[in-house]
Design a protein around this nucleic acid. Structure first.
Length: 630
RNA sequence: GCACGCGUAGCUCAACGGAUAGAGCAUCGGUCUUCGGAACCGAGGGUUGCAGGUUCGAAUCCUGCCGCGUGCGCCA
């Protein structure tokens, strides 16, 4: 969604929901659109004023770029077009801005009047901060986290969890009804394998940890590894009989383990009481740690968000049937597949042995989310490598009509695919011994580093944190460490890989989470020292640094709407960094508490308070806790 | 082989088809009896992988190359 479109949305909202005095950009866009219609006879999409925030303060606060685009269509020079529109808009625009200037090939540069800017700031200083609210009339399902039972969370889950949480929070912030769907891997042969392996050993499932489970998972996989290929290779290369016998013994052991796993799976599927009870214990052990990690991360993930693969187990046969009956699925080499017109790759929805696949579950889940949860958007926060898979699943759902909602509209299916977390060597992050990093280890290190830095600074007698208790410093250090990791992950385009570099993330300099926390804490200090303030003081942004800060604040509502629409958390990050930068400039140039004029002091205090609220609001959307002191 | 994604400053990354492609880090130079210096201001640094095309205007859209990455029926 372009900024222009969201500005237009602001204008549209005003016409139905009354005046939104903070929405200067929306008002300007509407005035220009009307003027384009009145003076040029152009309407609809062609009358788009193409209003943008100016790229450079010398071009004013906003610029409108419509003239060049209309030049060819109307056969008139762009500057002439701009002039006639500006003339037609002169009256209504005068209340908001200085007379617009026409520059270059036909840009219309607009500078907002100080009075209008102050009034807009006073208007946006309300509970919603101007962010649109759909009041529960719209519904989204966000597929996030996606852990597997009996497996330790690793760095991939970091992204699936915090990106999903941010997308959920973005929509919650705008009043959407949000379903957080933790699509656990809690069903099928892999789980049965672990369960079978643990039961063979007589392990006490009541006293097991996730680390134990993870080890059992790997052991079970190794036990069942069918070494047919190795056997064939040994035979063909004529390796010694000792090696051959060893492999054959391993092979028969593996066959026994695999058979045990299949038997366990059958018990589980048939609802055998003892087996199901043990299965639930595996889930409990796994989820206990998942929820702990979510708490550490500041992610809203609770038991009621769990709806794993097992939830869909009784819908899979019907899913396949529906595709077969509709003629979209056919049998091929014993398997059931869905073919597409534009690609060779088919989608397998049932194996030749009759078992279902993860694609089958995904199809059933789309139908459930759209038709039973009523979602108009379904978002998958899953590794970008599954792009092809989701393209197939989404297309299959459209073909069979499962994106159709009760009101007849089509749901929007989106894969918010994210890139890999890389180590310094540009390869997927591994420990020195070549293992995947557990998420817990990674977060422990981040918290440790954050705490170290906070404690080190607290030793300075001048530091505001000097003399704080150890528990308080630890709390702040934890917030800093987690903010560093989360901000680094969310601040670049999610579809790209990024290099995990804790030194850079936590350096406290530049575009980092700790920098934003610092900006927030600094404002908190000013407000605390100010004591009582006049919440209704007039705001008069006179000097350039005040104007820049004011204009940044007014961009907040459209930033939230755009980030939610595009599913791009990095837009929130970029905005907050720019806001913090604008505040720093203001702070440097404009004394607040030391301002001599009481009116100026009160105006600037309100600007500080408003900035703090927007910062806290944005950090809240990212799920980042902002301490008052650090 | 086919499909998809990505190539922007030394490094990490921005940029809705719009004015001189911007930030951060690093480098160099300033501010400084601090409303919190974890700050601010400035400088240098670019043929946006290459070649064409569309457009008043292209990092952005189209085509072809080159390079890197990922995926490609009975795992999830």
């Amino acid at each position: 969604m372009s900024e222009t479109k969201s500005m237009q949305r602001g204008a549209d909202a005003r016409s139905t929901a009354g005046d939104q005095a903070w929405d200067i950009a929306g008002a300007l866009a509407r005035i220009l659109r009307d003027a384009i219609g009145a003076s040029l006879g152009v309407a609809g999409d062609d009358a788009d004023p193409a209003l943008r925030s100016s790229t450079n303060p010398k071009f004013g606060d906003y610029q409108a770029n419509f003239a060049m685009a209309l030049s060819k269509r109307l056969g008139r020079p762009p500057r002439e077009i701009a002039a006639s529109v500006v003339e037609a808009a002169r009256g209504p625009i005068a209340a908001i801005a200085e007379p617009p200037e026409i520059a270059g090939p036909g840009f219309v540069n607009i500078r907002v009047r100080t009075g209008a800017l102050g009034a807009a700031l006073a208007a946006i200083d309300c509970p919603s901060l101007g962010v649109p609210d759909v009041q529960g009339t719209r519904t989204i399902a966000v597929d996030l986290c996606g852990v597997n039972v009996a497996k330790q969370m690793h760095v991939g889950h970091l992204r699936a969890t915090i990106i999903g949480d941010t997308i959920a929070r973005l929509h919650e912030r705008m009043g959407w009804r949000v379903w957080r769907e933790n699509h656990l891997g809690d069903w099928g042969l892999p789980i049965a394998m672990v369960l079978a392996s643990l039961r063979r050993r007589g392990t006490d499932l009541g006293a097991i940890t996730l680390a134990d489970l993870n080890a059992a998972y790997r052991a079970a996989q190794a036990e069942s590894a069918d070494d047919e290929a190795g056997l064939a290779a040994v035979r063909s290369t004529g390796a010694g009989p000792h090696r051959l016998i060893e492999l054959e013994a391993q092979h028969s052991g593996a066959a026994a383990a695999a058979e045990d796993a299949r038997r366990t799976l059958r018990l589980l599927q048939s609802g055998d009481g003892a087996t199901v009870a043990d299965w639930r214990k595996l889930i409990d052990v796994t989820m206990h740690e998942v929820f702990e990690t979510a708490k550490t991360l500041g992610v809203d993930l609770r038991p009621e968000h769990s709806r794993g693969e097992s939830f869909y187990r009784d819908r899979l046969a019907a899913t396949v049937d529906a595709f077969v009956r509709s003629g979209l699925a056919t049998e091929d080499q014993g398997a059931i597949i869905v073919r597409f017109a534009d690609r060779e790759r088919p989608l397998l929805i049932r194996k030749s042995d009759g078992a279902f696949l993860y694609a089958t579950t995904d199809l059933a889940a789309v139908q459930f989310r759209v038709q039973e949860l009523g979602a108009e958007r379904v978002v998958y926060c899953v590794d970008a490598r599954q792009r092809d898979h989701f393209a197939d699943v989404f297309d299959a759902c459209r073909m069979i009509g499962w994106t159709r909602r009760r009101d007849g509209t089509d749901a929007e299916l989106r894969h918010a695919g994210f890139g890999a977390v890389l180590g310094a060597d540009k390869r997927p992050l591994k420990t020195r011994s070549g293992e995947n990093f557990t998420l817990k280890a990674l977060l422990d290190e981040a918290v440790e580093r954050g705490t170290f830095e906070v404690r080190r600074r607290a030793e300075d007698p001048q530091a505001p944190t000097h003399g704080m208790g150890d528990a308080e410093l630890a709390r702040i250090g934890r917030a800093v460490g987690i903010a560093a990791v989360k901000y680094a992950d969310l601040s670049s385009d999610i579809s790209r890989d990024y290099v995990f570099d804790l030194d850079r993330m936590i350096s406290f300099e530049g575009d980092t989470g700790p920098y934003l926390l610092y900006a927030h804490a600094r404002i908190c200090a000013i407000l605390a020292k100010a004591g009582d303030m006049d919440a209704h003081a007039a705001i008069a942004p006179d000097v350039p640094e005040e104007r820049a800060l004011a204009l940044a604040i007014l961009r907040w509502p459209s930033t939230v709407a755009d980030a939610a629409h595009a599913l791009e958390p990095n837009r929130i990050c970029g905005y907050l960094f720019a806001l913090a930068g604008a505040f720093s400039g203001f702070y440097q140039a404009c004394p607040v508490l030391r301002a001599e004029d009481p009116g100026v002091r009160a105006s600037r205090l309100r600007l500080c308070a408003l900035t703090r609220r927007v910062l806290a609001d944005g950090l809240g959307i990212l799920g980042i806790d902002a301490p008052a002191r650090m």
